[in-house]
């Protein structure tokens, strides 16, 4: 047995143990924290599978943002799970076992791990993406070429989903919500913790710089618009948590955030429309410059920035909307 297999098996065992513990815990804060741990282990597995872009996203979203949002949501409700009576557990167990059994049964159809003649490996499109993209676009990270250029329309759809989520949260908790429900929470800062304040202030520029690095380095290594947006959001969330929401909203006023949510989406759409006006098809970046490769570079850069802007604005807005409310227990 190779080292690689052994590491994978130990990580899988850790993953299963974490999942079982999360389902057993009835204290929901603790369960939320353990689900962050679950994401970390999943991300490690993705790293071992060489899926570095996925690992990046999993870590940024699973640990950074969804933990914060889960905790923010829990702070507004009860933090203990209600007890399910034993009679009602049976149907749940049946469904879980059935679904799990189906998945295990279906997994037998999957090609062997690392198999060279799986459908994905043999399909001519794989070769096109891996080799042709170097000539068409000339970006070392093929994931970025596929995500932002070849499948640009799919990515636009994903961005639309993020946008819709942000609008939905704003409609429920934002300016359109009932004004009585939108009361401020009194105490939301960690000003007593001087060390934390100093260190966070020191880290802030590095976090934002790292987010920019992830955004612009996505052509060459792991990273891109989604990840950079989440890192920006994590930076703002950290600032809001440590210095208080009022301070954070002085730095980035809510109105600006609300305006940035559609701005990213419109920028993305705008790139596509400009392509059409220049005589190409929608999101055909070749038209942006006389040299097709340069046009692709510019288009991918614009699209990635658009994704980053919308994602960062949506994540930050969702967090601020949660944190601005008082618990209604």
């Amino acid at each position: 047995m190779t080292v690689f297999t052994l590491i994978n098996i130990s990580l899988l065992a850790i993953l299963v143990a974490t999942a079982l513990t999360v389902s057993r815990l009835r204290a929901l804060y603790e369960a939320a924290m353990l689900s962050a741990l679950f994401s970390l282990v999943t991300a490690c597995l993705f790293v071992l599978l060489d899926a570095v872009d996925v690992a990046f996203t999993e870590a940024a979203v699973g640990v950074g943002i969804s933990t914060v949002l889960l905790l923010g949501g829990l702070a507004l409700t009860r933090s203990r799970e209600a007890v399910t009576p034993r009679r009602r557990r049976l149907p749940g167990a049946a469904v879980a076992i059935l679904a799990g059994g189906t998945l295990v049964y279906a997994s037998q159809d999957l090609p062997a791990f690392g198999s060279a003649d799986s459908p994905v490996q043999r399909h001519p499109l794989t070769d096109t993406y891996l080799h042709q993209s170097q000539e068409d676009i000339g970006i070392p990270n093929t994931v970025t070429s596929v995500l932002a250029s070849y499948r640009g329309l799919d990515t636009l759809g994903e961005l639309l989903v993020v946008f819709t989520a942000g609008v939905a949260v704003l409609a429920l908790l934002g300016p359109l919500a009932h004004p009585v429900d939108a009361r401020r929470r009194d105490d939301l800062d960690l000003v007593d913790y001087r060390v934390l304040r100093v260190i966070s202030a020191m880290l802030m520029p590095f976090i934002l710089l790292f987010a920019l690095y992830v955004l612009f380095h996505g052509d060459f290594g792991p990273g891109g618009g989604f990840q950079a947006g989440v890192i920006f959001a994590a930076g703002f969330v950290l600032y809001g948590l440590v210095f208080g929401l009022d301070k954070a909203q002085q730095v980035v006023p809510r109105v600006v955030l609300w305006a940035l949510i559609p701005f990213g989406l419109l920028l993305y759409l705008g790139v596509g429309v400009v392509n059409m006006l220049l005589g190409g098809s929608f999101l055909d970046y070749d038209t942006l410059s006389s040299d097709p490769a340069a046009g692709q570079h510019l288009g991918i850069l614009l699209v990635e920035s658009a994704i980053g802007i919308t994602v960062a604005a949506v994540m930050t807005t969702v967090f601020f909307s949660f944190a601005n409310r008082r618990a209604t227990r």
Partner: peptide, 16 residues
């Protein structure tokens, strides 16, 4: 650098 800054800070804040 990151771990050297955040590790002790997290420990201190937790204990506090």
């Amino acid at each position: 650098l990151f771990l050297a800054l955040t590790g002790p800070t997290a420990s201190y804040v937790l204990a506090f």
